[in-house]
């Protein structure tokens, strides 16, 4: 589609089709994630963003198409094998393990012994709250704290790629800021594929975007182009009209 530098993509999702039961959920999804960047996936509710991430990690394996990670075809492989190649997954809806303490949630994410010890300083610097909540069981955390734990968990092992599904969902504005900072900091060392409904957040973080609509990739390109293209935003991300206004206001205040 648009400008791609071949050989520089850490992840290439190539025309995948995914079924859940007999439902044809993804009909033709392609995503490119260049190394060292943040790529955001946009689309309405039910467009198939979460399913795309799950197809990549192998929880809903695609029936057709290819997924190439780090030069290797991974479609059809088992999820744990895919994860162990160096892909971290932060699911939507804060799916942390409620019966486990914060500490155990983080320990469980280890792939090698000592992963957590190596990374703990980094993690607690990004999310200082977690240090205080260390011993609490997961079901005692607030929604925002669970979201942070879900992200932190993906940082424990060495990952080349992070798949993050709506990290800002249900967070207070101040926490959204903190989450954005965290993700920006992460992107210095890790490639990120982000699903984000909050257009402000998405547009400030990502260099590239992919729009998915009704199970198909309809557009991809550079974020700076998308911000200019109000029609496109309007057409596919109808829900974010308000977001656009906010954007304009922001532009005004910046000028």
């Amino acid at each position: 589609m648009s400008e791609q530098i071949p050989g520089n993509d850490l992840l290439v999702v190539d025309r995948i089709e995914t079924f859940i039961g007999q439902f044809h959920i993804l009909e033709n999804v392609s995503v490119c994630v260049p190394k060292g960047s943040i790529t955001v996936m946009l689309g309405r509710n039910g467009a198939g963003k979460t399913t795309t991430l799950k197809s990549i990690i192998g929880l809903t394996p695609p029936r057709e198409g290819k997924i190439i990670f780090d030069g290797m075809e991974i479609q059809g492989k088992q999820a744990f094998n895919i994860a162990n190649l160096g892909i971290g997954y932060v699911p939507e809806n804060r799916a942390i393990f409620r019966a486990l303490s914060v500490q155990e949630n983080l320990k469980l994410a280890e792939r090698k012994k000592g992963d957590f010890e190596r990374k703990s300083d980094f993690i607690f610097e990004l999310f200082p709250d977690l240090k205080r909540l260390y011993k609490l069981p997961g079901n005692h955390l607030s929604g925002g704290q669970q979201q942070m734990l879900a992200v932190a968990r993906a940082l424990v092992p060495e990952n080349k790629l992070l798949l993050i599904d709506e990290p800002s969902e249900g967070l207070a504005p101040i926490l959204i800021q903190q989450m954005m900072e965290a993700i920006r900091k992460l992107s210095e060392t890790t490639t990120i594929l982000l699903v984000e409904q909050n257009f402000i957040m998405a547009s400030q973080l990502a260099e590239r975007y992919t729009i998915i609509d009704d199970g198909k990739t309809v557009q991809e390109g550079l974020m700076k182009d998308l911000i200019e293209d109000t029609d496109l935003i309007h057409h596919y991300l109808g829900a974010s009209i308000k977001t656009r206004k906010e954007l304009e206001m922001e532009h005004e205040s910046e000028n």
């Binding site: 999820a79 744990f80 699911p91 799916a95 393990f97 019966a99 155990e104 469980l108 994410a109």
Partner: peptide
């Protein structure tokens, strides 16, 4: 730990690289 986590959400355990 894996068992207690798996009782709640085996898919997520798998996605963390554990052979459920």
């Amino acid at each position: 730990m894996i068992i207690r986590a798996g009782v709640q959400d085996p898919q997520m355990v798998e996605a963390m690289g554990i052979n459920v």
